[in-house]
Simulated scan of single mutants.
Amino acid sequence: MKGRLKRHIVLIGMMGAGKTVIGTELARRLHVGFTDSDVEIESAAAMSISEIFARDGEAFFRDRETQVLARLLKGTPGVISTGGGAWMRAENRELISAQALSIWLNCDLETLWHRVRQRQTRPLLQTSNPKAVLTELLAARNPVYALAEMSFPSQSGETVEAATSRLLEAIRKTQPDLLEMK
C-alpha cells in the first residue's frame, strides 16, 4: 500500500549508526525519495568531505551542511540521512524539528567501532587513537542526540531489513498521522 509522507523523516546519529543503509531501505518501503545530506554536500562542493575538512575546515563544512539541510527540507517529504555532527548544531535541530520527524539511530560504541574502524573516509577519526576519539564523540553527542523526537536503539547482529521493519513499526505506532495512505 502506497502512502504519502506528511513531513520528512530525518535520521540522525553517529557515523556508522546505519543512517544511510536503513534510510535507503525505509525510503524504498515507503515509496519516497532518499537523500544522504553528506552526498549532497560532496556533490555541491565537487569534493569529498575529507577534502572539504582538509581544505576549508570543519566550520566551513558545518555551514555548508546547514545550507544543504535547509534546501532538502524545502523539498517533497522523503527520508534524509545526516552526517553525525549535523544534529549538534542548534540551527540544524530547529530546521529539522520544524519540518521533519527526527529519529536518532542509537548505537553502542562497540558496534560503531566495528563499522567504522577500517574506513578512511571519516575525517574526525584520522588521529593516532581513533577509538578514543569515537568514544569521546559518542559521550559528547548522545545527550544532544537524545533531543530527537524519536529514539531507535540498534540491536547487535540485526540485518538492515529487520532493523527497517522494526523502525517502520515504531514509526507507525508512535507517529500514526505521519503517513497518509492512498
Rank of each mutant, 00 (worst) to 15 (best):
G83S: 08
L112I: 10
G157E: 10
E42G: 14
S43T: 15
R166L: 04
A98T: 12
L124D: 09
F152H: 03
G83C: 08
L134W: 05
R71H: 09
T135F: 08
V68K: 02
V160D: 07
A86E: 04
N129I: 14
T135E: 12
K74W: 11
L69D: 01
Y145W: 07
P123D: 08
S102C: 06
S156W: 10
M88S: 00
W113H: 01
A162D: 13
A163C: 09
S37Y: 07
I103C: 04
I49V: 08
P153E: 12
N92A: 02
R89E: 13
D36Q: 05
L137S: 04
E158L: 01
A44F: 06
F152C: 06
I41K: 04
D56M: 07
Y145R: 11
A139L: 02
L112T: 07
V116H: 03
R93Y: 02
E58W: 08
F60S: 15
T66L: 14
Q99P: 05
F34W: 11
Q120V: 11
I96S: 07
A44Q: 15
I80D: 09
T127A: 05
C107S: 05
W87Q: 04
A70V: 02
S156A: 14
M88E: 00
D36A: 12
T159W: 03
M47E: 10
S81R: 05
L124P: 02
